[in-house]
């Protein structure tokens, strides 16, 4: 039962990672790609770490996996925010429907 559950968790985590990677390639500008990476980082990481934790049961490894998840849980939003803030400071205009305003400085 545990194996089936960890199989399901790890496979969905991997699928989320690949979907995020595809989103990283297809989205038009930095801010939407930031969203794609945010989805994969938190979703795929938590599912895969949970799946691994199920495999290792109540042991020292699951505590380490919990620490890894805690670090990722706190650091990935911080890095996404600093990235978005840096891009905004650098006057990168968010993508808009009419392509004329792509890339030039915003007001």
């Amino acid at each position: 039962m545990i194996d089936i559950l960890s199989w399901v968790l790890i496979v969905t985590g991997g699928a989320l990672g690949i979907i995020g990677g595809i989103g990283l390639l297809r989205f038009p500008d930095v801010y939407s790609r930031l969203h794609a990476v945010g989805v994969t980082d938190t979703g795929c990481a938590s599912l895969i770490l949970l799946g691994l934790g199920l495999q290792s049961g109540w042991s020292f490894e699951s505590v380490k996996l919990l620490f890894i998840y805690a670090f990722l849980f706190f650091t990935s939003p911080a890095s996404s925010f600093s990235l978005g803030n840096g891009a905004w400071q650098h006057k990168i205009k968010p993508w808009s429907k009419d392509q004329s305003t792509k890339g030039d400085a915003h007001d």
Binding site: G17, L24, V30, V37, D41, A45, L72, L83, H90
Partner: peptide
């Protein structure tokens, strides 16, 4: 196109390598 995409991709690569080491 922009330098921030590269940093973003490297960031994603890093967290995925964390998962790879765990696996």
């Amino acid at each position: 196109p922009t330098v921030f995409d590269r940093i973003l991709a490297v960031n994603m690569f890093g967290t995925k390598s964390v998962l790879l080491v765990a696996v």
